[in-house]
Design a protein around this nucleic acid. Structure first.
Lengths: 102, 102
DNA sequence: TCATTATATGCCTTGACAGATATATACTTC
DNA sequence: GAAGTATATATCTGTCAAGGCATATAATGA
């Protein structure tokens, strides 16, 4: 599980990231929100942590997770040239493709 | 294989999209560029087609593929709120998260 | 110390998917 | 129409990952 692209492929992980976007969250809080069993959530949190997209802080028996969205930059940057297409109108893209015919 | 997130998880598909970004391409041309065997390429092109990210045009025995990047908007829009973080400096994100503590 | 709460980890099963090989299909050219 | 070219599809196999269950670990409180 290396690339952030693969990370985003799993809907559970996307939901976790979306939750963490609203602030730090304990594992229990995330479990309740996602309505999944705790080990499944912990497992994906581990993946996010390993990828550098989240970090943990200990609070008594609780583990508080926090978002580190910088890793998503890779995806955003890959996407940038595509974004250009629909930002400058669809017709512009058509023109670009037409002019680049093999 | 529904969401465009899962689509982007595969590096072969990302390479295909990147190639098509330079203009229409025949299957053979893509095979040569990716240095993969033809069925593997055709298979992923099929996935892209089914997802609406590419279309085919027939030219004699050739099939010419063309990019339709609009489907990537889903990913781009999901990413938008995260992009905000690194665009307005890391410190801003830290502040945001701190102020939203559970 | 013992029970409870909170979380992580190990193991297992199952499903999905990528790539490979073989083959089918369709068009072209001689 | 036979051979060659271009592409798609069917099938197989290996791999990998997600979720479920059981259990380990650690902190708290009585």
């Amino acid at each position: 599980m290396t690339s952030s692209f693969e990370l985003l492929a799993d809907p559970t992980r996307r939901r976790l990231l979306d939750e963490l976007r609203n602030g730090e969250r304990s594992v229990g809080a995330l479990v309740r929100r996602l309505k999944m069993n705790q080990p499944a959530v912990s497992k994906q949190l581990r993946v996010l942590r390993d990828a550098g997209l989240a970090s943990v802080r200990v609070d008594a028996q609780r583990r508080i997770y926090r978002l580190h969205p910088e890793g998503l930059r890779e995806v955003d940057e890959w996407l940038a040239p595509y974004r250009a297409y629909w930002e400058e109108r669809l017709d512009a893209m058509e023109r670009t493709l037409d002019s680049m015919e093999d």
